[in-house]
Computed example of a mutant assay.
Amino acid sequence: MTGEYFLLVCDDIPHDVVLTDPGVQVLDVAQVVRRLTGLSLWRSKVLATRVPATILDGIPEEAAEAAVTALRAAGAQAEAREQPEPDFLR
C-alpha cells in the first residue's frame, strides 16, 4: 500500500459548535452549555463569556444543528462549522 488515505463520500463531515455571542442572559446560555458539555455551571459560564468559544467539536451535523438551536433558544448566537480537511488528505 502506498500510504494514501481516502475520505469516503458516505462519511459524515465532523462539525464544531461555536458560540459567537452569549447575549444578555448569560446564565441561561451557561446552563445550556452545561447540559451540552457536562461541565460545571461555573466552567460553563466562563466558557460562555469567552467568545468565540468552541462548545463542541467533531460531532455529526445533526447533533451540531440541535446544539445550535438550543443555544439560540437561550438567546445566544451560535453556528455550526465544518471542520477543515486534515492535512494528510491534501
Score class of each variant (00 low, 15 high):
residue 82 E to C: 06
residue 73 A to H: 12
residue 24 V to M: 10
residue 2 T to D: 10
residue 22 P to V: 09
residue 22 P to N: 09
residue 86 P to G: 06
residue 67 A to Q: 06
residue 87 D to T: 12
residue 61 E to Q: 12
residue 15 H to S: 05
residue 31 Q to A: 14
residue 17 V to T: 06
residue 33 V to G: 03
residue 1 M to I: 11
residue 9 V to N: 06
residue 34 R to Q: 15
residue 84 P to G: 10
residue 72 R to I: 05
residue 67 A to Y: 04
residue 57 D to W: 05
residue 74 A to E: 03
residue 60 P to L: 05
residue 50 R to G: 01
residue 43 R to N: 15
residue 75 G to Y: 10
residue 18 V to Y: 00
residue 29 V to K: 02
residue 77 Q to H: 14
residue 33 V to W: 03
residue 65 E to W: 10
residue 75 G to R: 07
residue 83 Q to V: 13
residue 22 P to A: 09
residue 61 E to G: 03
residue 16 D to P: 02
residue 50 R to W: 01
residue 12 D to C: 07
residue 8 L to G: 13
residue 72 R to S: 04
residue 32 V to D: 00
residue 16 D to F: 03
residue 9 V to T: 09
residue 1 M to R: 12
residue 80 A to T: 05
residue 79 E to T: 11
residue 13 I to Q: 09
residue 41 L to E: 14
residue 22 P to E: 07
residue 76 A to W: 01
residue 36 L to Y: 05
residue 54 T to W: 00
residue 77 Q to V: 15
residue 53 A to R: 05
residue 9 V to C: 01
residue 31 Q to F: 08
residue 20 T to C: 06
residue 33 V to R: 01
residue 58 G to S: 13
residue 80 A to G: 04
residue 46 V to G: 07
residue 68 V to I: 14
residue 21 D to R: 11
residue 64 A to L: 09
residue 88 F to I: 12
residue 62 E to N: 14
residue 43 R to M: 13
residue 1 M to A: 15
residue 19 L to K: 04
residue 25 Q to L: 08
residue 79 E to F: 04
residue 34 R to L: 08
residue 36 L to R: 07
residue 71 L to S: 02
residue 52 P to T: 09
residue 7 L to F: 07
residue 80 A to F: 02
residue 57 D to P: 00
residue 70 A to V: 01
residue 42 W to D: 12
residue 70 A to L: 11
residue 45 K to E: 15
residue 63 A to M: 10
residue 24 V to G: 12
residue 86 P to Y: 03
residue 62 E to G: 14
residue 38 G to K: 06
residue 13 I to V: 15
residue 31 Q to M: 13
residue 35 R to K: 11
residue 81 R to K: 13
residue 85 E to L: 15
residue 75 G to F: 10
residue 87 D to H: 10
residue 77 Q to T: 15
residue 72 R to C: 06
residue 85 E to G: 01
residue 43 R to Y: 10
residue 79 E to D: 11
residue 30 A to V: 06
residue 4 E to M: 10
residue 37 T to I: 06
residue 83 Q to L: 13
residue 64 A to Y: 04
residue 64 A to T: 06
residue 23 G to K: 02
residue 67 A to L: 08
residue 83 Q to G: 03
residue 5 Y to E: 10
residue 36 L to V: 12
residue 76 A to S: 07
residue 69 T to R: 15
residue 61 E to D: 09
residue 8 L to E: 11
residue 23 G to V: 03
residue 28 D to N: 13
residue 17 V to F: 05
residue 19 L to C: 12
residue 14 P to K: 08
residue 81 R to S: 03
residue 49 T to I: 08
residue 2 T to F: 05
residue 29 V to S: 07
residue 22 P to W: 03
residue 36 L to F: 09
residue 62 E to T: 14
residue 71 L to T: 01
residue 41 L to P: 08
residue 56 L to D: 01
residue 5 Y to M: 10
residue 32 V to S: 00
residue 52 P to Q: 08
residue 1 M to Y: 06
residue 30 A to H: 04
residue 59 I to H: 04
residue 84 P to R: 10
residue 85 E to Q: 10
residue 54 T to G: 00
residue 74 A to L: 07
residue 63 A to V: 08
residue 4 E to L: 13
residue 32 V to K: 00
residue 8 L to R: 15
residue 86 P to D: 08
